[in-house]
Design a binder for these strands. Structure first.
Lengths: 220, 220
DNA sequence: TCATTAATGTCGAAT
DNA sequence: ATTCGACGTTAATGA
């Protein structure tokens, strides 16, 4: 991700034509190739932009951004006030499912609702390919990775499997690491695949967990 | 405008609840008070955001952003890799050309591009529930209502239908009143619904219309 | 303030 | 690759 603060003017020719007179703005270039030009207003929406996939031809003082449909964004840079690049890595992405996010909070508080004797080590334990929802310890002292879903389906089992490969190779953890898929409901297909892979399944009751909470839905 | 690159996790509680696991991201704070959290993908759209007006309560390592509707964005900053602020000033803003309004102007000048023999009675003829884009007369002397869209879809047909009910009851007009949906492209569903309701469809070429204009605003 | 409508809408799922 | 509908739609406009 590259951040440029510059005095610039911008012309867009594509589905419509648009022009931005000279002013100081943020030019944001993302790793996906997208370019957006932000002023200090308009909330999160840029004044102008080009969505990926697109190509940036960087000449002296002029960036010519073109996409496949031959739409063009021409940025004339008059004065560069800041220019920095940052390595962000792959983002694990947004969990939009309200129930799932809340379910994670609830189960982090009561891991024994997943399996008796379970205690929490960490939430969002990083595996290198994304965080596993809960990392726990069982009564034997062995490690348990828990993947939480609203609906337990095949992809949840796949995800947990990928995490376990990483966690098994993690020198910081006692081995072996068991896996449990926790969900409000689990499909027969997911159960079967989980059994094949030696993974546990736990059905949890969201309303019951919420009822057990000391105070009501104040997340913070 | 403040730019922060940081390892952070984010929780949003509002119209939905959402969670972002820990990762390195851009936190963009604009002068209008808006906050947006960007990953290195998703084009210009942030992973999560809070639109103004909102208040940022900045504690140690935790930013709590709240709006009037009590929606909350909680940003937990674990490691700050970059933090800079920039004075941008007021932006002169975007000048646009080529949206629906422009198409309406062009077609008002050349209604025969919609259907041969069509002549304009009025632009923005009021129906009581909103103005119909063009009111025309065809070669037979009967009335034609034209709804203009960039993209002709179901809702355009619905809109035109609502207008026609009103225009049919308008004593100032010769009856019956026909309806035509004019757009740069029309979806099959919209065509089907239009046919069912006895409405016409007309695909118009914006570039061609513009080409017929006396002066050509070709930027490049 | 609320309702209506356009949007370079964007985004994701289904065809 | 297209098409369709949903969106924390957002944003502008008129009543």
């Amino acid at each position: 991700m590259r951040l440029v603060i510059a005095r610039c003017s911008v012309d867009y020719v594509g589905r419509l034509t648009a022009h931005l007179p000279s002013a100081v703005r943020l030019v944001l270039v993302k790793a996906d190739g997208s370019v957006s030009i932000h002023a200090d207003g308009r909330a999160y929406k840029p004044l102008n932009w080009m969505s990926p996939p697109c190509v940036i031809a960087e000449e002296t003082g002029v960036w010519r951004v073109t996409n496949r449909a031959a739409e063009q964004l021409v940025i004339t840079l008059e004065e560069i006030l800041h220019d920095s690049s940052h390595e962000l890595g792959i983002d694990p992405g947004l969990r939009k499912d309200g129930v799932e996010a809340h379910l994670q909070v609830l189960l982090a508080d009561r891991p024994d609702a997943i399996a008796p004797g379970l205690t929490l080590i960490r939430r969002e334990y990083e595996t290198g390919i994304g965080p596993v929802d809960l990392l726990c310890r069982d009564s034997d002292g062995s490690t348990v990775a828990v993947e939480i879903k609203r609906k337990g389906e095949i992809d949840g089992v796949e995800q947990l499997t990928r995490y376990l490969v990483r966690l098994d190779a993690d020198p910081a953890l006692p081995h072996p690491v068991r896996g449990i898929l926790a969900a409000q409901s689990i499909t027969p297909q997911a159960r079967l695949l989980a059994a094949d892979r030696g993974l546990g399944c736990a059905v949890v009751d969201y309303d019951e967990l919420r009822g057990l909470e000391p105070s009501i839905p104040t997340l913070f």
